[in-house]
């Protein structure tokens, strides 16, 4: 817990952020460029799906991020509620729009991939449906966070919701899978994870890392911004008191 609490001090956190940020940003740019290069030039076209398989290199990492960011929000919420860690609230708040953005991307690129593969923009496939529900969970979380006059209360309520939602995610996933096998759609594209060819796996992994780093960069900047906002609020209050 000690490492964890060492960064509870906003100033220490800011200092660390400022030194780390340029490096992480550089790494993000490099991995993104490398991932894009591999996605377009070194990876082959799929023998069944042709060039459309290249959508996978943004779609799958976006879907990974959708779940990863939601888990991070749940983890931050637990820290915020139990240990009252001052940065945890900010991290949860800063993560929500990023996660919602990635979830939206997973859905939109999924539709763009589905149209040529399934012949429809949307099918009630188990994965797509779960991601859609996850998107609703994000929307609810963000709406609740901003629904109160008192930002503190909004953060705390959203933290409870995030934890409840996180406990429900496996239940939702299970029920949607179950529902889907019962009502199997006519044509299903098989996309088995582990059997994927290395020439396709590598660009996927590099893009996955790039997306995670991107999340880290935006998250750090947003937390920094939130910290400054807190300081501004304090100053403004002091000015009002003086006047």
């Amino acid at each position: 817990m000690s490492v964890f609490h060492r960064f509870a001090n906003p100033n220490r956190f800011l200092k660390l952020t400022n030194t780390v940020l340029p490096w992480v940003s550089g790494l993000t740019a490099i991995s993104l460029l490398a991932g894009l290069y591999m996605a377009f030039f070194t990876s082959p076209a799929d023998y069944q799906q042709g060039e459309s398989v290249r959508i996978m290199y943004v779609h799958v990492p976006a879907a990974w991020m959708a779940m990863f960011v939601y888990s991070s929000i749940a983890f931050a919420s637990i820290c915020a509620l139990i240990w009252r860690h001052p940065l945890a609230d900010l991290a949860a708040k800063a993560s929500a729009p990023i996660g919602a953005g990635f979830t939206f991307l997973a859905l939109a690129t999924g539709a763009l991939w589905g149209k040529p593969m399934w012949g429809a923009w949307w099918v009630w496939d188990a994965r797509l449906t779960s991601v859609l529900i996850l998107f609703f969970l994000y929307l609810g979380h963000m709406a609740l966070m901003n629904a109160f006059e008192d930002q503190e209360r909004g953060n705390r309520a959203a933290a409870v919701l995030a934890i409840v939602g996180f406990i429900n995610v496996p239940i939702i996933k299970f029920s949607v899978d179950w529902w889907n096998t019962l009502h199997q759609p006519a044509s299903v594209m098989r996309m088995d994870g582990p059997s994927i060819d290395p020439s396709m796996l590598w660009p996927l992994l590099v893009m996955g890392v790039a997306f995670k780093l991107f999340y880290l960069v935006v998250l750090l900047i947003r937390i920094k911004s939130e910290l400054i906002e807190a300081k501004l609020r304090k100053y403004r209050r002091a000015l009002v008191d003086n006047a």
């Binding site: 959508i55 943004v58 991307l105 040529p116």
Partner: peptide, 19 residues
């Protein structure tokens, strides 16, 4: 993109726009 350009490029452009 092997006639899939109308799907591949919007997917990447959308990703770029959101990020």
């Amino acid at each position: 993109m092997g006639s899939y350009g109308a799907y591949v490029w919007p997917a990447y452009l959308l990703t770029a726009a959101v990020m």
